[in-house]
Design a protein around this nucleic acid. Sequence first.
DNA 1: ACCCCGATCGTA
DNA 2: ACGATCGGGGTT
Length: 171
Amino acid sequence: MRLTKDFFQKPTLQVAQGLLGSRLIFGAYAGLITETEAYIGEDDPACHAAKGLTPRTKVMFGPAGHSYVYLIYGMYHCLNIVTEAEGFPAAVLIRGLWLESSTHLNGPGKLCKALGIATEHNNIDITHNEHFYITEGVAVGKMDVTPRIGIKQGLDRMWRFVADPREFQKC
DNA sequence: ACCCCGATCGTA
DNA sequence: ACGATCGGGGTT
């Protein structure tokens, strides 16, 4: 079953945890999500929207279930899915994917490079797209909870969620 | 116009 | 530990 807008229009921590084990479809690729991070609102210093509404962060303020893709370090792209009510800027970063080929794409930059996700895929409504969407997946086993990776602010928040694909239920 | 720096990754 | 590489956002 495809995940619909009401799945994403929820508290971001809930969405980030719920996405573990879900199946991401992008063109010919399909994989189970193994790692996510939450970025929540203008009060979260690590969230791009902490600097307010800008041309780049506009998508995060928009409706839930849209993609937020941006270029990082001039070389890599990161894929996020917008969460919460329209007007409240928040998103979940997709950091890990377990492909059907048993390839584990660990890291948001590697993931986007492998699938061919780039800025042209920014601001797509993945609840109404034929080639880019997320479905229900498998039950995950134990989930790790840690601070987010690669940031210098907001390290007190335990907003990274990791699941081990070896513990995924067959489904 | 200019400067700083970043939700990364591979190599050393 | 560090360099590659470039756009966003703030400052002059």
